[in-house]
Amino acid sequence: MVQITFKQNPVTLPGKEVKVGDQAPGFKVLANDLSPVTLQDTTGKVRLISVVPSLDTGVCSLQSKRFDQEAASLGDNVEVLTISADLPFAQKRWSEENGTNGITLLSDHRDLSFGEEYGVAMEELRLLARSIFVIDENDKVAYVEYVSEGTDHPDYDKAIEAVKALTN
């Protein structure tokens, strides 16, 4: 089981830890128009999944903007998804305010399906723990980072390198 802290306090992450080489677990989240989105909807592309607790916080906003900027250089066979437990309406507002167009924002607020399947649902907060997953076009996990302190940044460069290794 992954152990992390959020604001230096330990949090409980029920669910199974996802590891490199695993078949990516399925999930069902919501797009900003409230339509359901599953892992299978993006099969056939490399996915960089950036998980943030809330877009309305500094580190989460910066993380999402960084991957939005990187998305254009990753090619047409890569989809960059940002998943949080924020309401879809809040995600849409954030995207409009920040002018993002390289990432797809998805909400796990309804069922915490992604959070439970990927072991990132913080039980005490009903938020998702900061993490990064890179999944290949055949739904195999190629890279995982569970950020040990929820207010720290992930290793952006390693995540991008993992994506590029799958697309070159």
Rank of each mutant, 00 (worst) to 15 (best):
E116Y: 12
K7W: 11
F67L: 02
Y143G: 05
A165W: 05
Q23C: 12
P25T: 09
E161D: 13
K140V: 13
L62T: 15
D139A: 14
H109P: 06
K65E: 13
V141Q: 04
A165Y: 02
V147H: 02
I4N: 03
F114Q: 03
L48R: 04
R66V: 12
L127T: 06
E124I: 06
F27E: 02
Y156S: 06
V46R: 09
L166C: 08
K158A: 15
T57N: 06
L62A: 15
F89P: 00
K7I: 12
K7A: 14
D86T: 01
D155H: 10
D152M: 13
S84G: 06
G15T: 05
L39F: 02
L87G: 01
S95F: 02
K19R: 13
D86W: 00
S84H: 03
H109R: 14
G21F: 09
F6H: 11
I4L: 10
H109N: 13
P10S: 12
A165D: 14
E17A: 14
L34V: 08
V37L: 08
L39I: 03
T82L: 05
L105H: 01
R110Y: 11
T38E: 11
Y118V: 08
R66S: 10
A142Y: 04
D76Y: 12
E97F: 05
N168A: 15
S107M: 00
V120E: 04
E17R: 13
I49D: 01
M122P: 05
S107Q: 00
I132Q: 14
A24F: 03
G58P: 12
A85N: 07
T100D: 03
S61F: 02
N101P: 09
L48H: 01
S107W: 00
S107V: 00
F133W: 04
R66P: 00
H109G: 08
E161H: 10
R126E: 13
Q63Y: 05
Y146L: 07
S131R: 05
P154E: 07
V46I: 12
S148V: 14
V78A: 09
Q23P: 12
P14N: 12
E96G: 06
S113M: 07
Q40W: 06
S113P: 07
D155Q: 11
K140W: 10
P10T: 11
E116W: 09
T167C: 07
S148R: 13
S131Q: 06
G115T: 09
L34Y: 10
I103L: 10
L62G: 13
V2H: 03
V144Q: 08
S131A: 15
L125C: 04
S95T: 07
V134M: 07
G15S: 07
S73R: 13
G44P: 04
V78E: 06
G99H: 11
T104Y: 04
D41T: 08
K19D: 09
V51E: 00
Q3C: 08
A159F: 01
K92I: 00
S84T: 06
Q91H: 04
K65L: 14
S84Y: 03
S148E: 15
C60L: 01
I83F: 00
V20F: 06
T100G: 09
G15W: 04
A90G: 03
R130Y: 01
V141I: 12
E17P: 07
G44K: 07
E123F: 10
D136R: 06
E70Q: 14
E145A: 08
V163Y: 01
D136C: 08
S107C: 01
I4E: 04
K92Y: 00
